[in-house]
């Protein structure tokens, strides 16, 4: 389910690794948010340039197309960490303990396999647009003002690589939770019981209500 879930922490290596990675993920997600902000600034520049200076922003569309992968990819691991990618939790919501960890392990492993293959696939896509011998290393450029596209294409394997790290960590966490039969598994998003949810919500709302 979307939105915030609770991720438990403790003093273990696993939890430490989780929090270090989370810091990185948060920065990448903020980059994505700033890219949305830059879309807004671009439009203001484009419209005022056209209407007041009779000089439209050259390559407006090209710049938007460069910003979109930043928006679409950079937060992918952050969202996975918090359990923000939507799913149906009817079945897993009813499971507990080792059964739950086993099912979560299987679906997380499936995502891991997909993402490792997609790191390969998106890297190949990047490579086809990249040529050390060419001007600006570019073998693919945007339509209007010929910006090299390889930096934007590189974002996909980079963001997906970080997601693979996150998935590997979650797999480790599910194995650990399964072995120990933990009541409070570390470093994975949990579907919460009502009391925990209320506590989290109070913390959340007091932080940002204006």
């Amino acid at each position: 389910m979307a939105g915030s879930s609770l991720v438990f922490t403790d003093a273990s290596v696993l939890s430490k690794a989780d929090r270090v990675l989370y810091e990185l993920e948060k920065r990448l997600a903020l980059l994505s948010g700033l890219a949305v902000f830059s879309l807004m600034v671009l439009a203001v520049l484009s419209v005022s340039g056209r209407n007041f200076l009779n000089q439209p922003l050259p390559g407006y569309v090209d710049w938007i197309e460069q910003a979109m992968p930043l928006i679409a990819f950079m937060g992918i691991s952050y969202t996975q960490r918090d359990g923000g990618h939507i799913r149906m939790d009817m079945l897993v919501g009813a499971l507990k303990g080792r059964t739950l960890y086993a099912v979560e392990f299987v679906t997380t492993l499936a995502i891991f396999v997909l993402m490792v293959l997609l790191v390969w696939g998106t890297w190949a896509h990047f490579q086809r647009s990249f040529d050390f011998g060419a001007p600006m290393w570019s073998r693919d450029s945007s339509m209007d003002i010929a910006l090299p596209i390889w930096p934007a294409k590189l974002l996909a394997p980079v963001a997906f690589g970080v997601l693979c790290l996150r998935l590997a960590l979650q797999l480790w966490a599910y194995v650990r939770a399964f072995i120990n039969n933990d009541a409070r598994p570390i470093a994975v998003p949990m579907i919460l019981n009502a009391a925990e949810q209320a506590a989290l919500e109070a913390e959340h709302v007091s932080g940002q209500d204006s």
């Binding site: 009779n54 000089q55 439209p56 390559g59 407006y60 090209d62 339509m143 209007d144 003002i145």
Partner: peptide
């Protein structure tokens, strides 16, 4: 074509 139009003072604008 955009480059050519620039030479007669037109303002090329990009869009899909």
């Amino acid at each position: 074509i955009g480059k050519a139009m620039e030479t007669v003072g037109a303002v090329p604008t990009s869009m899909s």
